[in-house]
Amino acid sequence: MTIHSGVAGQPISHSLSPLIHGLWIEAAGLNATYEPFGPADEAGFDALIAGVRSGALRGLNVTAPFKERALALADEVSAMARACGSANLLVFNDGRLSADSTDGFGLMTALAERAPAFDPAGAPVVVLGAGGAARAAVAALRDAGAEVSVLNRTRARAEALSADLGCAVAEDHAVKDAALIVNALSVRPEIDIAALRADAVLMDMTYKPLITPFLAAGRARGLTAVDGLAMLIGQARPSFEALFGVPAPSVDVRTAVLRRLGEVA
């Protein structure tokens, strides 16, 4: 029997998830598919989820703008998805639709791979932003023992996140003492790179471009930079296992994705 799954979002044509999961499916020798779905609106997404419940699909990864709706439609919600206020993974099993968020796992995996010297336990960390991506970062780093604070242009949103997840609200000067700065904004943060610690780690949650201006400025100063692609691949691993019942094979998907992005020949 073929296992059918995929990723849903709008727009969806840019998604790298079908490439990543397709390579793992092939390496694992599975009788399975992983397809992109682009519902036009929330009603279309709801119809797609009805297909999941009917057994037509084993489950779905979910990206913008449907991650909050995915959480609302689930029968069971993981602690991480609840903390994030959204879900990027829906799996149908035993008549129940379960929601999870693997973004935080992906972030921690990326840090372990690309910044192995960084130890989150007790480390001062500043997360830039207060949206869903920031919530995933805060929850994962908090659970790893970091001293997390949130810096956002709209302080009220930072305070709301702080109240929900038990982190601090950062002042502008907090970044200069941070061991890790995570950019969860969609734009380049206004940070004086020269004022940061000499051992600071910079992470950007986006991967287009792979090396953002934020990371490039950090690299120019000799700081460790962690790109969003490492997080994307990291968050896909637990999704693959949840959808297909086997661990993701140890194959080099990063090189294939870099080629797709035009980063390598």
Rank of each mutant, 00 (worst) to 15 (best):
M1R: 11
M1L: 12
M1N: 02
M1G: 00
M1H: 08
T2M: 15
I3W: 05
H4T: 06
S5V: 00
S5K: 01
G6C: 06
V7A: 11
A8H: 02
A8R: 02
A8F: 00
G9A: 15
G9W: 02
Q10D: 11
Q10Y: 06
Q10T: 11
P11E: 06
P11C: 04
P11H: 03
I12T: 11
I12K: 06
I12A: 05
S13Q: 11
S13A: 15
S13W: 04
S13Y: 04
H14R: 10
H14W: 05
H14A: 06
L16H: 07
L16I: 15
P18C: 07
I20A: 04
I20Q: 01
H21F: 03
H21D: 03
H21A: 03
G22E: 00
L23V: 08
I25A: 04
I25Y: 02
I25V: 09
I25Q: 03
E26V: 04
E26N: 04
E26H: 04
E26K: 12
A27Y: 15
A27D: 13
A28M: 14
A28L: 14
G29P: 13
L30N: 10
L30T: 09
L30H: 09
N31R: 10
N31K: 08
N31I: 01
N31Q: 09
T33P: 00
T33V: 02
T33G: 05
E35W: 06
P36Q: 07
P36N: 08
F37T: 02
F37Q: 07
G38W: 02
G38Q: 15
A40G: 07
A40F: 01
A40R: 14
D41H: 05
E42K: 12
E42Y: 05
A43M: 07
A43D: 14
A43S: 12
G44S: 10
F45Y: 12
F45A: 13
F45P: 00
A47F: 00
A47M: 01
A47E: 09
L48R: 03
A50H: 05
V52T: 06
V52A: 15
V52Q: 05
R53E: 11
R53W: 01
S54P: 01
G55T: 03
G55A: 12
A56F: 02
G59S: 08
G59L: 01
G59C: 05
L60N: 12
V62F: 07
V62E: 14
V62N: 12
T63D: 09
T63G: 02
T63I: 14
A64Q: 12
A64N: 07
P65R: 13
F66S: 14
F66Q: 14
F66H: 15
K67V: 05
K67N: 06
K67D: 03
E68L: 09
L71V: 12
L71F: 11
A72M: 14
A72W: 08
L73F: 09
